[in-house]
């Protein structure tokens, strides 16, 4: 069985945030404005985390891109009272907007804070609606949304390979963030395929997961900085 996972090499990452913008464009996430940002209600399925340690001049800053971890034991799924968020057979944690009642149990349960409530009706100027991606829906006010590993791309990739009568190969399905990464710091693929890059990198001595001790078993694996 396929288990989709992502590896982010922090040693190669340059914190440029191309992934952040690519995600917003691909998934019809509305741009924030000053009021929404000041309320911490802006939606970024993928965002950059910043940790600063030490005092001048011995300062260490870590910049970590954070998508949904797509945990193998997702706390958000356990708390959802209506089954609006589920983990699929290939490990992608989804969010079914039609079912979501906006109770925000999941936003509280998620230790990585990847779930975002739509506090407002998403707004775009009329002109910018032309850039909507037809493969992704617009989420209404009052539902929770999250990173889906661009699962619409998976649907389309499957369709494509079926039409070409072949199996899904590496590179057929890649989320928007991974596709744009200018320093090739992000990898995406099957965590169960021993010949794949992701499988091998996930077993590197530099590999770690965020908040690993919580037992959520994330499928986003980071590679630490340095030699």
């Amino acid at each position: 069985m396929v288990r989709w996972g992502m590896v982010i090499d922090l040693d190669k990452c340059t914190a440029c945030q191309a992934c952040v913008v690519a995600c917003q464009v691909e998934n019809n996430v509305p741009p924030a404005d000053p009021t929404i940002d000041a309320q911490y209600r802006a939606i970024h399925w993928l965002r950059l985390l910043e940790y600063r340690e030490g005092e001048y001049p011995h300062v260490r800053t870590r910049l970590i891109p954070r998508p949904c971890m797509h945990c193998d034991k997702p706390p958000c799924v356990k708390v959802c009272p209506v089954g609006a968020t589920n983990i699929g057979s290939e490990g992608i944690v989804d969010q079914i907007y039609g079912r979501c009642i906006g109770c925000r149990y999941c936003t509280t349960a998620c230790p990585y804070t990847v779930k975002y409530m739509n506090w407002y009706r998403p707004r775009w100027p009329e002109e910018m609606k032309k850039a909507f991606n037809p493969d992704v829906t617009i989420r209404p006010k009052g539902v929770v949304e999250k990173c889906t590993f661009c699962s619409h791309r998976l649907i389309k990739a499957r369709e494509r390979v079926r039409a070409e009568a072949r199996e899904l190969g590496p590179g057929d399905y890649i989320p928007a963030c991974v596709e744009t990464c200018p320093s090739n710091a992000m990898y995406f693929g099957d965590l169960e395929n021993p010949n794949g890059t992701v499988f091998q990198l996930a077993r590197s001595h530099r590999a770690f997961k965020l908040l690993e001790d919580l037992g959520t078993e994330p499928k986003v694996i980071y590679l630490s900085e340095g030699e």
Partner: peptide, 9 residues
Amino acid sequence: GGLCPKGQS
């Protein structure tokens, strides 16, 4: 194949 945030937007 890579693109920066400016290119993306």
